[in-house]
Amino acid sequence: MSINWVGLWTIIRREFSRIMRVPIQAFLAPWISALLFIFIFGFVVGKRFPPIGGHRYIEFVLPGVLMLNIVNAAFLQSTSQTYFQRFLRYIEETLVAPLSYIEMIVGSLAMTIVRTVITALGILAIGVAFGATTVDSVPEFLFWVVGVSVIFGLLGIIVGLWSNNFEQLTMLNVFFITPLSMVGGVFNTVNMLPGWLKWLAYANPFFYFANGVRHSMIGYSDWAEALPLGVAVTLGLSAVLLLIVWRLYAVGYGLRE
């Protein structure tokens, strides 16, 4: 059977309508947060740090801040979309419709990407306006924004399907995303870490995401091999998570009675 393009577009349209009920939470909050980071790291604290690879500290930090906001936007979008649809049972509208599992997943991910791209472009525009960043490579920038969105969008779907209450929705964020992102080279170079901690950073996917986004914006990479490895980590994780989500949809986990 052919792809249900209208159905796919309707999933995106509908979710966009839901997001536009909370534009401050969805878009304004990360932009204001980026503005505050620029103020603190650009004009207050940042002046005390020496340049890193020839870049001011704010130039080094802002790509990581942008990456953190993409991660949060993607994860929040897909967990809330999936969980609220289940909680209020209107997920049944799509279950009774002629939509394939892949169409449902792609529709959900597409909206996640729309939200994160708007978030990222807003932060980028603010950064450029305040002279805090540049864009070294637009295709590379888009690759990282979309790649990170897909990974955390898929993780968000899994958590949204698994959660049976609001407490469970936040668990991955509290115990996994926030700690790993903080030690993933957002605020410091890996070279600042002691030897044994460097290897921990290299084992942390957030390091590759932050490093990739940073390279696409200011052309600086902590470690030359980190870029191809980061691309492999991003594509590999996306593929594995997509398979898991597809399987969960196919068996109806968290969706069907």
Binding site: R14, E93, T94, A97
Partner: peptide, 30 residues
Amino acid sequence: IGLSPQMFNVDPFATPRQIIDWMGGYFGMT
């Protein structure tokens, strides 16, 4: 199949016009 379920399985913040239109969209209507 068209289903009118026993329980209201609807986005409570959406309008009737949106709810009907979205369902038509899921079914591929132009």
